[in-house]
């Protein structure tokens, strides 16, 4: 981590960049937050890069692109897909960013610690990149000590890591570690839901989506949700809604949100990570990704900055609407 700070200080000092977009130590070890650093002192004091730095910093580059001078941004391999996608959508300016591709050995999910009764972490070792990270050693504020296998507390997305290769970068630092599960793929859960009866699917999603409190955390964190004003805030549309008044509205919100990011969603999983209600929102995005892959050929948003997404392209031989539904029960 110190080498990241040193490099950032160098780039600040020689004027290559005007600021550094990185992760800042949080109140607790498990909640570092995205932050813009402007001085060497600040970097030394607060910069952090460890297993809890799951946050994808790409989206913050939208604002940073409009600032004077370059911004140094640290991007993990999976974050670079979002950055490319944002270039494609003219939301970030490549020349305004100095990208350090940082290695990734899998990121941690605090929720998994909570489920084990280890939510109140005081200190944790084994998660820094420099260390061996097969096992995380946790000490809680109550003095409990426990060793947990790293894979058991890893974020869901890391089990199905897209790649350890950065798609776009100016320089690379630190190594990565393979975290992908040997069995299954990211669509397993979607396929399991597809195999249920319509009643079961309805009940499942109702039980999940009804938890939504419309805090808009998913929308705020999502790099694809980059509208200046969301359609659900658009008073010219008669769709503006601030809160869930009834069962339908969270459905409408989440269906449309997933639809609007379809073909643009890189499957970074930030929506599920930040949801305070633990709604598995990525299952909606992945449903669209799976459908698009099956119907129109495999496509990974953000793997480059040009290829049009499946919803802004077509072929004359596309399957008819509803064609994919025959596979589904009910």
């Amino acid at each position: 981590m110190q080498e990241l700070i040193n490099r950032a200080k160098e780039l600040l000092a020689d004027g290559t960049v005007a600021r550094v977009l990185g992760w800042k130590k949080g109140d607790f070890v498990y909640n570092p937050e995205p932050h813009i650093f402007t001085s060497a002192e600040e970097l030394e004091k607060d910069f952090v890069y460890d297993g809890f730095c799951g946050a994808n910093l790409s989206k913050y580059m939208i604002r940073a692109s409009k600032m004077e001078g370059k911004t140094l941004v640290f991007l993990k391999p999976c974050d670079t897909f979002s950055f490319n996608q944002l270039i494609k959508e003219h939301q970030v300016v490549r020349e305004q960013a100095y990208i350090i591709g940082v290695g990734c050995k899998g990121k941690l999910d605090h929720r998994k610690f909570q489920e084990m009764g280890l939510g109140d972490i005081e200190s944790i070792t084994g998660i820094n990149l420099m260390d061996e990270c097969d096992v995380a050693k946790v000490t809680t504020i109550y003095g409990d000590k426990k060793e947990v296998p790293f894979a058991d507390v890893m974020l869901e997305r890391c089990h199905f890591c897209k790649t350890k290769d950065h798609q776009i970068f100016d320089e690379k630092m630190l190594g990565s570690k393979e975290t992908t599960d040997t069995e299954g793929d990211r669509f397993d859960e979607v396929r399991r839901i597809q195999a249920m009866s319509p009643e079961e699917r309805f009940a499942y999603f109702r039980s999940e989506l009804s938890k939504c409190i419309r805090c808009n955390a998913c929308r705020n964190v999502c790099p694809a949700c980059n509208c200046l004003h969301c359609v659900f805030d658009n008073t010219n549309y008669d769709t503006a809604q601030k809160a869930n008044a009834d069962s339908f509205e969270e459905n409408m919100f989440h269906i449309i949100r997933a639809y609007h990011v379809a073909g643009r969603c890189t499957d970074c999983g930030e929506c599920s990570r930040v949801c305070p209600q633990s709604i598995p929102l990525h299952l909606l995005n992945r449903k669209f990704i799976l459908d698009m892959d099956e119907l129109y050929g495999e496509f990974q948003a953000g793997s480059d900055t040009e290829t049009p997404g499946p919803l802004t392209a077509f072929t004359m031989e596309d399957p008819e609407a509803g064609a994919g539904l025959e596979r589904s029960r009910g």
Binding site: V190, I193, Q194, P198, E199, E200, R201, F202, A203, Y204, F205, R206, N251, I255, A258, Y259, A262, L284, K287, F288, D291, M292, L295, Y296, P310, L311, T312, F314, T315, M316, D318, P319, E320, A321, G322, A323, G324, L325, S328, G330
Partner: peptide, 24 residues
């Protein structure tokens, strides 16, 4: 080209509604 886009849009939307348990 309008209906070609429609075909893709609706294929995805209908599949999503089906996924959420709305009778297809």
């Amino acid at each position: 080209t309008g209906n070609y886009y429609t075909r893709r849009r609706m294929a995805l939307l209908f599949s999503m509604l089906d996924y959420l348990g709305v009778e297809k």
